[in-house]
């Protein structure tokens, strides 16, 4: 007993020296650990450039596909955004309809209760407009006779609220003998807009799919790294490392891979847009010239980098969570 007590006192002396370090030191040590993990994982990426570049290229292709489609849809939307859905009805009259008949038809439609406004576009006006805006001015001049019909544009009353009434009006107008062809403008705008909706949704699902791909590619890369550093992980576990400690450098590896892939994807998308810029603007110049190509903006770039970094970290976390549970020292 006496012997033990003596030893106990020695033990206490040995132990009192262990409980050193105040809060400031601990916080500093914690910060140092993170800084070390951040830079050592970057160093490890650089130390094996070929493997890192391969992974980052694969990841950045996936990310740039998603962001490229996103910006493509944003551009198309810009193109169609100016077109507001209106319920205007266009009546194309038969070729043989005379000027007087066209005017009298326009007048009679104007009497209709459901009609707010009627505008008659004569053959001559239509031709002028076509020559000015279509880009086929010279070709039209070569024609012997004006191929364009009279058009009556009808704007229904309370157009948006009463869809059935408009449909009825359209049916009525179609019955007129002078009318060759009646068309509600809203239909094609609505169709275009639903096509855009489909495209937007498609891009969203595609992005989700590519995001999952990024998650698993990073996960697999981290799994390989974990495998390569198996001994180190086992030794760290044996000397009392928590899973959090072991995870940290791998999470930072995932972060760097995601981040660099994001940067590379930004370059891929921006370069592609730059290549497209000139022909698109030339094309746009042939029409009204109102269209300017959209690039990834500041917020979008930040979001791109943030999402790819988070995906990288999430991918490695996912793998570490399962692998570290399985891993037993020795």
């Amino acid at each position: 007993m006496k012997h033990i007590n003596k030893n106990q006192i020695k033990q206490d002396r040995w132990q009192t020296r262990t409980s050193g370090g105040n809060l400031v030191d601990k916080l500093q040590a914690y910060r140092d650990l993170h800084a070390h993990a951040l830079f050592s994982s970057l160093g490890r990426l650089i130390a094996s450039p070929f493997a890192s570049v391969m992974t980052i290229v694969v990841l950045s292709v996936a990310i740039s596909l998603a962001s490229g489609f996103y910006i493509l849809v944003a551009n198309l939307q810009q193109l169609t955004g100016n077109l507001e859905a209106s319920n205007q009805i266009s009546l194309f009259l038969r070729d043989e309809v005379s000027n007087a008949k066209a005017h009298s038809l326009a007048d009679s439609i104007r009497q209709n209760q459901g009609v707010q406004e009627v505008k008659l576009i004569t053959k001559e006006q239509a031709l002028e407009e076509f020559q000015a805006y279509s880009g086929f001015g010279e070709a039209v001049k070569a024609l012997e006779k004006n191929p364009l019909p009279f058009v009556i544009q009808v704007l229904p009353k309370n157009s948006l609220e009463n869809k059935q009434a408009i449909e009825a009006l359209l049916e009525n107008l179609k019955q007129e003998t002078e009318v060759d062809f009646a068309q509600m403008d809203m239909q094609w705008v609505a169709r275009l807009q639903s096509i855009m909706d489909v495209a937007r949704r498609g891009v969203r699902s595609l992005s989700l799919l590519l995001g999952v791909g990024v998650l698993f590619i990073t996960g697999n890369t981290i799994r390989l790294e974990l495998h390569n550093r198996h001994d180190e992980v086992v030794i760290a576990k044996l000397v009392g490392a928590t899973d959090g400690f072991i995870r940290r450098p791998f999470l930072y590896s995932g972060f760097w891979m995601g981040f660099f892939s994001g940067v590379a994807a930004w370059f891929i998308v921006t370069t592609t847009m730059l290549i497209l810029k000139q022909p698109v603007e030339k094309l746009s110049g042939l029409y009204d010239g109102a269209f300017h190509i959209l690039f990834l903006g500041f917020t979008e770039t930040l979001a791109l980098l943030a999402i790819s970094s988070v995906l990288g970290m999430a991918g490695s976390w996912m793998v570490l969570h399962f692998q570290l549970q399985k891993l037993k020292p020795e």
Binding site: G21, D25, Q28, A29, Y30, D32, G240
Partner: peptide
């Protein structure tokens, strides 16, 4: 140093 790094000791310590 590994066990000390793991236990979160400061650099000087």
């Amino acid at each position: 140093a590994l066990p000390l790094v793991i236990a979160g000791y400061g650099h000087n310590e």
